[in-house]
Amino acid sequence: MRYSRLRIIFPIGLFIALFLDGSLSNVFAGHLFKYPYSSVLHLVLLWIVFAIFLDDRDDLPVGLWAALAGLVFDWYYTGIFGVYLVALPLVVYISRQIKPWLDLNFLTMLMVYIINLTIVEAFVYVWYLIGKVITSNLADFAVYTLGPTIAVNLALFVILYYPVRQLYLKAS
C-alpha cells in the first residue's frame, strides 16, 4: 500500500509526457527541426527511465504502461503500428537488466539514458528503413538526428532530474 500514490502518478505523468512531446514539437518546430538537424523530444522515455531507476522496489508495472504508451504513440502520431509498441518495452527490459549492476547516481543514470535514447532511435530508424517508410543513410541518421536528439534530451534530463527525484522521494 506504500506505493499507491506512485501507481497513480506514474501513468498520468506518462500520458502527459506523451502528448507534451507532440505539442512541444509543434510549438518549437522551427528550432527542433531546423535543417539539416532534427532533434526529437523523448519525454516519455525520460519518464520511463526515471520510473525504473528512482523506484527502489521495482514495484511499478513500467513495462506494461510503456507498451501502452508505445501503442498510443504508433496509433496517434505515426499511424504505423508495432514500432514504438516494441521499442519502449524493450528499453524497459534492458534497463531492468542493467539496474542491479549499477551504483545509482546522477551520472550513471545519465549514461543509461543516453544508451536508451540510442536504442530507441536506432530501433525506429532500422524498422522504418526495412518497412520502406523512409529512405535515409546511416551517416545522416547518426549526425543529423541522433546527435541533436541526444543533446536536447540530455539538457531536459539535467533540468528535470532533481524535481522528479523529489517527487519520487515524497510520493513513495
Binding site: G22, S25, S38
Partner: peptide, 15 residues
C-alpha cells in the same frame, strides 16, 4: 487548429 506534431525526425506530419 493544429493539435500536435509527430515527434519524430522521419515524418513531417501533424494532427
Amino acid at each position: 487548429n493544429v493539435l500536435t506534431r509527430t515527434p519524430s525526425s522521419w515524418m513531417n506530419q501533424f494532427v
